[in-house]
Design a protein around this nucleic acid. Structure first.
Lengths: 197, 197, 197, 197
DNA sequence: TATGAATGAGAATTCATTCAT
DNA sequence: CATGAATGAATTCTCATTCAT
């Protein structure tokens, strides 16, 4: 069969992305095979190569797309003129929402950096750095405005991000805690952590 | 042949463990090949099978050994009768020390759980659970004694562990911060995080 | 899309032939892919199949066309009633002209016989045989007329053809020697070779 | 079965070389698959890679080995102090003997240059050039000593080599002509060709 | 006439593992 | 205890070809 009626390129590409994120999240990038991916999508392995020139490039695309989504979405959503406390609250809310909504993408973006080719790695780390810098900026502003008390803004950035990102690895939509409660709990933990007055 | 006359099995086994941890930490378990491992050790690939019956079993051994070390070492070190605040301080100190000293082992134990066969996975997760429970116990005691203020002891456990464990992924012995400073900074962050009075 | 509105089938077919000869001459038939060919022509791979039912058939067409051109052109050009010496001179002139003018076609026809399917191979070899026979005929006539001295007309045919055809593999239009000189040099070599009086 | 009793590395490598030459001569390098090669040798495809790191490297080894054999064997055999006529006779004899004895190797070395990677190509062409230079040297010496009459020593080199090498593509041990006759015939053709007095 | 999406078979290569020596 | 030769299955990726539109 040359083409299944109704299928088309964009749909197939989207299906590949989606299936890839699921498989990589579940087994890891190296452990996922193109055969498994193809089977999940419902195409032949060779067909994937119409959309992604290599397995490595597929991973790169996934990570870049996710990180660009994070950065650009925050640009839109952020309460630009609020005080550091409100901005930190907004950040926690934003981070947890995006890391539960796109849980698998976030997980993959955190776990699979080392599976990238060196040049790709540098590119993605630079992108991730831009996201980290958002939080560092908020913390520094808060320290200067005397409303946060952290010993080292950079270390605190890593600490808070690790804390928040970790949620994605154990959160289940059907679990004990809803998304709302999760956000409340982590807002409190983070605000205490940075010594918010 | 890198093998020195007079070297023996135990030395070789130790060399395999060591090399494996380095390779897995750098590239991931799936990406490490038995050939690379053998080359690093200075033996032929077949020789590894004298010591470990399979690649998967090697990973299991590494993780179990690390987690058992953590749990048993804490059993020895912990200040059993101190108040929750002192115990939490001791835990932070212990965790950061062991996660910088045995940085690669800790990193592997955190990243490669999903590379385990299902039965092995369950076994290792149970072990890890014992370590988590130590912290949950301290937090619950602190909440009851009114010296900590956390909204959910289990979530706070994950949050604090994520925060502390994250250190291992960016800490370098030659970096800006020494181990002593790292412990001080994280002690403050953690104490604030749990709302210690 | 490289296709100009108004271009049509014949133009496309010619473009495919031309591109195919270039690619096969440069890389070999097996090494040329239909995708490369399509790209060079400026169409999609599928489109080639409007003109040639298969890759193998395309090769066959190219070889048959070239060999038929050689034989029929000689039929037209040859100085039918001249003496063997003049006819051999004419043959050298004709061969070198056609093997420099259509250098790539000639090269492909010499190198890619073995890439043909068995039945196609037999057909093309028979055609080539007709061309070889022209030379053998001239040599035999010369030997009988006592103006050539060759030990074995068939071997001499192969020897002279190899000599002349070899030119196509190193001749460059921009090289040290012009086409005229090439013909003169080879005429002398061939005439000496067959012991022309 | 881990190892067939009696087999060993050197024997296997030799068997691979031998089978590869046969297959490449028959079908061409690109058309030969590693599977076919393995089957002919009687091993699994993967086993070939213990001896040759890639298909391309196998080809390179084959060509280099053949050309080095040619050059070094001539160094040993050549009648160094003879006059140009005798030396040319010796060269024809040597060339035909080595191109019928190692017919397939010679054929492959002539046909598959273009299948080499660019760097390998340059290396092999340089080697081949050394062999060509032997003949050019003899021809030039003959021209200077007034015993040969060729219009251009370089072109004559190509012509003579093409003539002699062509033998390998049609010679069969079971054919009409024996090796001795072949040498005689070609000696006469070549001597005439260069206008030997 | 040409496209673009897809196939299915097969390519080179890699890898964990085995085992006679 | 260790080697080195080999396996067999799987991996990523390519390619000629098909066909609905």
């Amino acid at each position: 069969m040359a083409r299944t009626t109704g299928s088309d390129g964009i749909r197939t590409e989207e299906a590949i992305r989606h299936a890839a994120v699921e498989l990589i999240a579940a087994r890891g990038f190296e452990a996922m095979t193109m055969r498994q991916l193809a089977e999940k999508v419902g195409v032949q392995p060779g067909s994937i190569y119409r959309y992604f020139p290599s397995k490595g490039r597929l991973l790169l695309d996934l990570l870049v797309e996710h990180l660009e989504f994070l950065v650009s979405r925050w640009e839109t959503e952020q309460p630009r003129d609020a005080d550091p406390r409100a901005r930190l609250r907004a950040f926690v809310d934003f981070h947890i929402r995006s890391h539960t909504l796109r849980r698998r993408e976030a997980f993959v973006a955190n776990m699979e950096l080392r599976s990238l080719a060196p040049a790709d790695y540098r590119r993605v780390v630079a992108l991730r750095r831009r996201y980290e810098d958002i939080l560092t900026g908020i913390l520094r502003a808060g320290v200067e405005a005397d409303c946060f008390r952290v010993p080292d803004a950079r270390v605190a950035t890593f600490a808070v991000l690790a804390m928040l990102t970790g949620v994605g690895s154990w959160y289940r939509e059907t679990g004990r805690l809803g998304k709302r409660e999760l956000i409340e709990i982590h807002t409190q933990l983070v605000m205490q952590c940075v010594g918010a007055q």
